[in-house]
Nucleic acid binder design. Structure first.
Lengths: 232, 232
DNA sequence: CCCTGCATGTGAGCCGCATCACAGCCGGTT
DNA sequence: AACCGGCTGTGATGCGGCTCACATGCAGGG
């Protein structure tokens, strides 16, 4: 399979496929298809049957939950080196959320029928997959707590810190959030409304906690934000 | 190990340990300790280091998340045949929630150092554990959606239907919820306040959707509750 | 038996935040 | 140009549900 070599993918030691012996990785890639999506293109929808897992090789994917009345909440943003859709791959049931390309992106698609046999003979990979799913579970549990215990201020602070932790770039006066997100999208991540997010951001800007710089947010006082994220 | 035989435990085909060849189960039980807890006794606390997983052989366990200001939310109720604490067993990190005995109960405790080697040589068990963790993840994701999309009416309806689905007993005029829970505990499951839950239950009783019968709830109109649980 | 504690039932008030409703801006289209 | 759709920024309004406050009833303990 020309062009698919282990070195070309951004899979580091923490990811499912990273740190694998090159031979194994090559073998897995033999089964994988690559697929490209344009910004805002739908990758899959909740409740659809699905038996594949995706690994992001470039770009970003938004995982969202649709609400009965048309709005939706962003549960996660998946970047290069990470996988998503692993639940349906493992248990073969319908997808639990929508996946939409946040930017143009390229994915590696692994099918259940190829992957499960691979798992059967490679318990170490299986255990690694277990730890990845556990990590997800930790994050999702934390989200339940966030929504129940924090006001939107706290949730927004968490969202910003999370975004900074995965896409932070050092700036002159703080950490700049690397991906371009509209306030509507940020609100959808924090589980709030666009207007409320806007007001909160403005207030924090006035207080000097952050700076809104041409549609990118620069966190200037991470300490204070962290306090807010912990419920004061 | 006297007294520990496979037949004595209520592990059916869906649970981790159910459906195992008796020889495997016997071997696992060789490593396991059994432990008893009294009602309201703490089994473990969030953030504590923990490397064991528990399987419930009798009684019920409440999994709760503590809030910064002393309240807490009940994330799950674990009954006979089910396991909990598997996250820390798998990844070795601190516990993600508190576990408290809801009733007197008896647990089987499996240690990481015993279980991981077992997993390494038994990929089928490993895959089964994967599906269990996935099931948890599905439920937890659904909880995030519930909290974000549903009002307390909807959440309470869901809580009642969930309780009925795991502990329902047919009654003359509907399904009776089998475990005794105070309204405060129900509120903690629905992520609401005791007062609000009380008012909602009263209203539904007036409308004939359910009946409160000596501290047990009988669902009389599941269809209507299901509609409410789906956001009307 | 009274007292203390905990569960239930209900009213009143208050506040966070979603919603509605605009206004100004920018970038792309025709 | 004029136009449209998306984004941002802000005020006004309304309501769900949390909190407080208090009454009642039941169980256990001295």
């Amino acid at each position: 399979m020309p062009g698919l070599s282990a070195q070309k993918f951004p899979f580091d030691g923490n990811s499912l496929l990273g740190g694998l012996p090159a031979a194994d990785l090559e073998r897995l890639l033999t089964y994988a298809r690559t697929k490209r999506y344009r910004q805002n293109e739908t990758i899959f929808l909740k409740d659809a049957p699905g038996s594949s897992m995706m690994a992001v090789t470039s770009g970003y994917v938004r995982i969202t939950a649709p609400s009965p009345d048309g709005k939706d909440v962003t549960l996660n943003v998946i970047g290069p080196g990470e996988v998503f859709g692993e639940i349906a791959l493992i248990d073969g049931k319908p997808r639990t959320a929508d996946a939409v390309a946040l930017t143009d992106c390229q994915l590696l698609v692994l099918e259940r029928r190829d992957f499960i046999p691979f798992l059967r003979e490679r318990p170490d990979i299986c255990i690694r997959l277990l730890t990845i799913v556990c990590e997800r579970l930790r994050r999702t549990s934390a989200q339940v707590e966030d929504v129940l215990f924090l006001d939107i201020g706290g949730r927004l602070a968490r969202t910003l810190l999370y975004l900074a932790s995965i896409h932070g770039q050092r700036a002159s006066d703080g950490v700049r959030i690397g991906i371009r997100l509209s306030q509507r999208e940020i609100a959808s991540m924090a589980g709030s409304s666009r207007e409320t997010v806007n007001r909160q951001l403005q207030a924090w800007q006035r207080e000097g906690l952050l700076r809104i710089d041409d549609a990118a947010i620069v966190l200037r006082d991470e300490k204070a934000l962290r306090r807010l994220a912990d419920g004061l």
